[in-house]
Design a binder for these strands. Structure first.
Lengths: 191, 191, 191, 191
DNA sequence: GATGAATGAGCGTTCATTCAT
DNA sequence: CATGAATGAACGCTCATTCAT
């Protein structure tokens, strides 16, 4: 197994265990076992558990963005762009339930709060295309006159909730339901 | 300190610590210390940590419902009732940030998932007025034709997200912003 | 409930719980509950748990002796006296399984060792009629020439083992089996 | 210290402490300390305290059988075989007082009762040579006509009692006393 | 005297992290 | 490098004992 393979196995094992069992249910020894490496080996790649958790988060984000931005063009009309992003996001969550559950675990924890604070204060980049889109929407007056944060909440709050309920089996999302849901979000933010 | 005072102190200490630090940031010994009681004392009032956590959740719910239902009347027009509940909920969260953060911790954990499953399957009562409202809305065709679960998500997803961002200091909600936010939710679900 | 009734209830509750569950399985609070008294009350009658345990032992011994000595006469022939005592002892154990199991718990514990040491060193009286009988047997040369302790062991070792197996249900002792067993013990010690 | 040395140290520390102080006089932390290992280390070798206790019992049994069976032959006359086993057992106990006291602690506890039940019901093998010997003795009519269990009690009851008294210093067993004692047991069971 | 709520030391066990091999 | 055995602090929980009522 090559060096980067090992890293990948560790990341993957951590993702599965944490997504399924939470941070509690994923001791380092268990992550190591599932990754097929020694317990000490993890510490060659990640300084400690916190670093592993944050690094894994970063990697998931990086895998998510290309997926969401695939086919996205800043030339399209505003509504179409909004629908594209929302639909892509919901698709991503539904097709990557482990990623989704990990992201949820992460956000709902001290890690996530610190992370989010950094991002809003601009010390962290990442999903700036969301921010750009919403700023444009405000400038063009197609969006309701809300602070950016609230526009985010109105858009993603429902999507995340729907994704969770789908993954937990409380509702079954098909293509048309996804579209309708995103359009409902649009109704929420559009002027 | 009277008997029920002690119970109250424990509940209160648990609320604060868990809201602020999560379940694993709140060892029983620390809860006891903050409550000003011995470690063993907690177990006179709560069989174990799980029971304490669930009991605390139940108590918060019981405090929340009267707050939200205050002034609520099934005679009012549908939109008014929706706005009432949404506004009240957001108010409650904003005025009780510890409660809010505890509820979030709870829902985002094995406790919450089990709880939610019970509720959706109808084996648990509680916020049935929400369900009733939404069922009426569907029947009267004032709401978009969605499964109940998704209507919940479209309504509460944003409210919860907004409350979280307010509490974390990412946005400052005033009365008018609250109203506007709830109305945006309404735009999301109304036909 | 009178003062001595209370003491009796405590003794009785302790006997039952310890006999059935061992010292471990008999917390003071549980003893108090079964006795129908407050937990603190026990400490009015017994300085602490150790004292309770030793006192209870002493009381059981005191109840046992009259039972065993009933009908016993130093005038009878030696063998008859031996058989009387052995039979009576086995009967007592079989008819008072709680007593028997308590005595066993006691003897097999630091309490019992200290107790036995006292007794053999003569600082404790009690079952001196056993000692007298065996000393006579030695003097009259009807018993094998063994130290007293070994004669005790040859006599009571089997009886205790048989009683235990009966109580645990590994064998069913009836009157004739009891007699035969005691006679076998006699064969062991007689010259 | 090698891996198996550590396991041995733990076993040995547990044996000493439990033999001397009983199960509750031997907390895991104290066993670890005496073994010269960290508290957590025990759990690498034994799943929990129960498993350690049972494993230790099994190991003692395995050490005992070869000792007892050394020089034992099924060809010898019945009485000789009985005397061999009895003498060997008593020797073993006297030469291994810690083993003896541990075995006593074990048998006089929920562990031992369950264990003994298994053995009598035949779901456990082990000292089947005892059983075989006694069954032969019954068939050949050299033993008194008793259930097996009682023959066991008549034989081992005294031996165990004598061993205990020797170890506690209540009597001093030498070679001739051992022989005489076993012969007395034989008198007890022989027809 | 009687109570039982309160205590806190002590238990068995877990797990992030280290380090000799 | 990679390992995984070893560690020990920290956890949830119990229970003998005390003491205000």
């Amino acid at each position: 197994m090559s060096k980067s393979d090992k890293r990948e196995e560790i990341i993957c094992a951590a993702l599965e265990l944490i997504a399924e069992q939470g941070f509690h249910g994923a001791p380092m020894a268990m992550i190591a076992e599932r990754a097929g490496v020694g317990a000490g080996t993890i510490y060659r790649y990640f300084e400690n558990k916190d670093v592993l958790i944050n690094e894994l988060y970063r990697e998931l984000e990086e895998k998510m963005y290309p997926f969401i931005l695939d086919g996205y063009t800043t030339e399209a009309p505003f509504r179409a762009r909004f629908v594209h992003l929302g639909t892509a996001l919901l698709h991503y969550f539904i097709e990557h339930p482990l990623h989704f559950r990990y992201l949820e675990q992460f956000h709902n924890s001290p890690y996530g709060v610190a992370f989010r604070r950094d991002k809003l204060l601009g010390t962290r980049s990442g999903c700036d295309f969301f921010r750009e889109l919403f700023e444009q929407g405000l400038a063009q007056q197609v969006l309701k006159d809300f602070p950016l944060v609230i526009l985010f909440d109105l858009s993603f709050g429902p999507l995340v909730a729907v994704a969770r309920d789908h993954i937990l089996g409380f509702v079954q999302m098909d293509e048309s339901m996804i579209t309708k849901t995103v359009e409902a979000c649009w109704d929420g933010v559009r002027r």
